[in-house]
Design a protein around this nucleic acid. Structure first.
Lengths: 214, 214, 214, 214
DNA sequence: AATGAATGAGCATTCATTCAT
DNA sequence: AATGAATGAATGCTCATTCAT
C-alpha cells in the first residue's frame, strides 16, 4: 500500500536508532565510565524508552562489546589517513603518534572507552588489541622490507608492537593525568611528547648505553 | 609467656586480619575485578564476618584506595632487591623487567589491581604511578651520571620512564591475554620477552632506522 | 471500551499502586512505627515488589514526608464535612471532637503516624500542624464574628488552638493507651470523652475557680 | 585486707558509671533522638567501653526504659517545689505551667526524651504519664475540696488532667517549633503563653459561648 | 568488672531485564 | 516495533549484642 520509500525509511529508522544507542553509549561511557553507563542513562541520552534498548541489543554487555570496535575503527582510519601521506619509517611513526594524540584530544571519551574495555568488555578489548597489533605488524614489516633491513621474526615484531603501543598509551595517560598538562595548549605539549617519543624510537636516548658485558 | 605473649598476640591478630583482608581483596579483584569485589566475597575469602571488615576499613572505597599502594610497595621492594645486585645500566634494566614479570607470575591478581585502579581508585593509581615514575627517574638519573652520559632534562626522563613502564606493562598484557602463553613455562616465555625488551632498550631493533630526512 | 478504557486503566492502575503504598505505609507505621516501617514491609503489605516502590517515591524519606500531609488532608475533609452540618459554636466544636475520635477509630494507624512524624518527618509534621492550626483559627474567627464576641488577637487565637489540639490529642492518647478502653464499645467511651471535653470548652468545669487574687 | 573505704569506693564507682551512662543517654537522645542514640555514642559520651554498657543494662531498650522516669522525676520535683509556694488554684496552676516551660528551657533534651519515649519506650512513657496524671489528679482533688466545690468523678478529673497536659505540651511544641520564638527572650514569650493558658483555664476565652441549645 | 574486636542480621537503594499494553 | 512500569536479586553499610582476653 505504501511504497518502497516507506519500507526503506523503516529500515533506516531502525538503523538510526541503533546508531543513536551506540553513540549515546560512547558519550555516556566517556563521561561516567562503563560502570556508570546504565541503560537508563544510555536510553535517555539516545531519547528512546528503556525497553527499546532490548530490541537492538541482547543485553548491556552485548552493547559494550560493540563499543570499542566501533570507535576503534574510527581511530584506525583517521590515523591511517594521516600516516599514508608520509614517507619513511620515522616520518610515518611520527605521524602515527601525533595522529593518536590528536585523536584523543578530539575524542575525549575514547581514552576511557579503551581503558575500561579491558575490564568491562574483555573480548572486545582483545579483539581491538589484535586488530591494532596486526595492522601495526603489517606496517612495520612493510617498512623493513622497503628499507632492506634484516628480517625479524613475526613474534618479535609483535612484541615490539606491544611495546610501542604501551609506550604511546602511557604517554597519553601521562597527558591525561595532569589537568595542568591537559589545559596547556595541546599542540605544544604534544610536540614535546612526540619529540621524546621519536628520540626513543630512533634509539637516541639510550644509544650510549653499554652492553651487558660492557 | 603470659603477659608479653598476650599483648603481642592482640596486636598481631589485628594486623593479621588487616593483612588477610588486603590479600583477600587482591585475590578477589584478580578474579572478579573491582566491580565484582563485594564485601561479601572479600570477607568470605578472608574468613571473617562481613561486619569485621568495617573495623579495619571505613568503606569499600577506602580499602580500594589502599590496595594498589600497599601491594605496589611490595613490588617495588622486590624489584629493587633484585636490581641492586646488578651492575651497569643494561644489566639493571634487564633485572628490572625480569623481576617485574616474575612478580606478576607470583601475584596473579596484581595486574588487574593495577589496571582497574585507574578506573576504580584513580587517586591510588595516580599515587602509585607517581611513586613508580619518581623511583625510576631517580634510578635512571643515577645511571646516566655514573656513565658520564650527557644530561637529559628531568621532564624528558620522566617521559621516557612513562614509555618504559608502558612498554613493559603492555608486554605483561600480551602475556596475560593468552591463556596458552600464560600456561607455557613462564620462564622460557619470559626469556623471549626480556630479550626483545632489551634489544629495544639498546636501540638495536631500530638502529638501522633512517632519520626523517633519510 | 477499548481505547478510553485502556488509557484510563493505565493511569488508574498507577494511582492505585501509589495509594496502596501510602495505605500500606500507614498500616505498617501504625503497627511497627516509622522505625520499623521498612521498604520490605511496606511493599509486602502493598503486594508489589520492592523495586516498584521507587517508581512512586524517590526514597523512604520522601514517602514519609507525604504520609502525614496526605492522610491529614483526609482527616480534615472528613471532619469538615461533619462540622458543616452543625450550627453554633458549641455544636460545631462537639462535632469536631467527635469526628476526630471517630476518624481515629476508623484509621487505627493515624495516631502513630501523627505522633512519630514529629520525630521521623519533622517537616511534614510542621506542615500538618500549620494546616490544622490555620484551618482551626479561621473557623474560630468566623465563629466569634458570628457571635458578635469581642475580638481576640490572632496570636492569642493561635495559642488557643494549640491548646485545643493538645487537649483533644491527649484525650486520644488516653483512649489509645488502655487496651481495655480501646476494646470497649468506642461509641460509649467516646461519649464520655466528648462530654468532658465540651464541659471544659464551655468553661464549666472550672467556672467556680477564683481568680489569682481570690 | 583492704578496708571498708575501698569496698565502698567499688560500689560508688559502679554507681557512678551507671549514672554516667544514664546521663550520657539523656544528652545523646536530646541531641540525636532515640534512633540516633547508639550504644557506641552513649558509651563514648560516658567514656567507657562498649562492652561495659552490658554490665549495667541488659539491653539498649532497658536503658531507654529508665530514661524518662529518671528525668521525669527531676521535672516533677522541680515543678512541685515551685507550686508548693503558691496559694489558690489559679496561682498554683499558673506556677505549674510556668515551671514547666522553665524546666524545658533549662533541660533542652527533655522535650525530645519525653516525646520520643512514646515510640521508643512505650512502657516508660505510660508509666510516666500515669505518674503525672495521678499526681495532678490528687492535686486537683485537693484544690476542689479546699474550695468547697462540687465533687466531680475521678474519671472526669482524669480526663481533665489529660486535657491540661495536652494543652501545655502543645504550647511547648509551639514554642519549640519556631526558631524565632525559641530565640526570643524566653521569659517574655513564656509570659504571653502563660497568660493565654490561664485565660483558658479560667474559662475566660469562651465564656460568652452559648450552650448547644442556645 | 572492663575491654573492644567480632559478629551477622537487617536495611535502603540500584539497575538490568521482562512484559503487558 | 515502542513503551515504561514492574520486578527482585544484589550490594554497601550499621549497630546491638556477644565473647575472648
Amino acid at each position: 500500500m505504501r511504497r518502497g520509500g516507506t519500507r526503506v525509511s523503516r529500515a533506516e529508522k531502525s538503523e538510526a536508532i541503533r546508531r543513536a544507542l551506540l553513540e549515546a553509549a560512547v558519550t555516556v561511557v566517556g563521561r561516567f565510565g562503563y560502570a556508570g553507563a546504565s541503560i537508563a542513562r544510555i536510553t535517555m541520552s539516545a531519547e528512546v524508552a528503556q525497553g527499546t534498548f532490548y530490541n537492538y541489543f541482547e543485553s548491556r554487555d552485548e552493547l559494550f562489546s560493540h563499543l570499542l570496535p566501533e570507535i576503534g575503527k574510527l581511530m584506525v582510519t583517521e590515523i591511517a589517513d594521516k600516516v599514508r601521506a608520509e614517507k619513511g619509517f620515522a616520518a610515518r611513526e611520527e605521524a602515527r603518534i601525533r595522529a593518536y594524540l590528536q585523536f584523543l584530544r578530539s575524542n575525549p571519551g575514547f581514552y576511557r572507552v579503551l581503558r575500561e574495555a579491558e575490564t568491562f568488555a574483555p573480548e572486545a578489548h582483545r579483539e581491538h588489541m589484535n586488530n591494532m597489533v596486526a595492522g601495526y605488524v603489517r606496517a612495520l614489516r612493510a617498512e623493513r622490507q622497503r628499507a632492506g633491513a634484516p628480517r625479524v621474526s613475526d613474534s618479535e615484531i609483535e612484541k615490539m608492537v606491544y611495546m610501542l603501543l604501551g609506550a604511546r598509551d602511557y604517554l597519553a595517560m601521562r597527558l591525561s593525568v595532569s589537568p595542568q598538562r591537559a589545559a596547556m595548549a595541546g599542540g605544544a605539549t604534544d610536540d614535546e611528547t612526540v619529540r621524546t617519543y621519536m628520540r626513543a624510537i630512533r634509539g637516541g636516548l639510550f644509544d650510549d648505553v653499554p652492553d651487558r658485558a660492557g
